[in-house]
C-alpha cells in the first residue's frame, strides 16, 4: 500500500507545515489552513494536480474567505475569484487581476 501524498506549506522561510492529504482537495477548489502565527492560508489544487497557497484574507472586504472562491484560468494564469465581490487573484503571484495595486501573500507549497 502506498502512503497518501501529503500537502505541505511553508509559512515562513525554512519551515514547512502539513496542511492535509492532497486528496482532501477537490481539484478546482480550495480549503483554509490555520498558520502557526494565527494567519490563514487558502490552499488550492487545479485540474492538472498542481497545488497553490495564498493568504486567505480577501483584501477588499477583510473577510477570511479566499479559500472558498472558485478557481479558473485567464490568459494562461490560474486564479481564484473571491466569493464575496469576485475580484480575481493570480495563484502564483498573489496579484489581483482586477486591481493592479492589490496583492496577497503567496506561500510555497510541496507534496511529499
Amino acid at each position: 500500500m502506498t502512503t497518501p501524498t501529503t500537502l505541505e506549506l511553508s509559512p515562513a522561510p525554512n519551515s514547512w507545515m502539513t496542511v492535509c492529504e492532497e486528496a482532501r482537495l477537490t481539484p478546482g477548489r480550495g480549503l483554509a489552513a490555520l498558520l502557526p502565527d494565527g494567519r490563514q492560508a487558502a490552499v488550492f489544487r487545479d485540474r492538472a494536480g498542481r497545488a497553490y497557497a495564498i493568504d486567505n484574507r480577501d483584501p477588499f472586504t477583510g473577510a477570511q474567505v479566499l479559500s472558498r472562491g472558485l478557481i479558473g484560468t485567464a490568459d494562461g494564469r490560474t486564479f481564484v475569484a473571491s466569493p464575496l465581490l469576485k475580484q480575481r487573484f493570480d495563484l502564483e503571484t498573489g496579484r489581483c487581476l482586477d486591481d493592479d495595486g492589490v496583492t496577497v501573500a503567496v506561500y510555497p507549497v510541496r507534496t511529499i
Binding site: 478546482g28 472562491g69 472558485l70 479558473g72 484560468t73 475569484a81
Partner: peptide, 24 residues
C-alpha cells in the same frame, strides 16, 4: 465540466480550469 471545456471550449481555454462564470 472538464469534458465540455475540453471538447467545446475556446482553443486557449481547453485543458484549463474554466472560470468563475462558466463553472457555476
Amino acid at each position: 465540466f472538464a469534458a465540455l471545456l475540453d471538447s467545446h471550449g475556446r482553443e486557449a481555454a481547453k485543458g484549463g480550469e474554466g472560470c468563475e462564470v462558466c463553472k457555476p
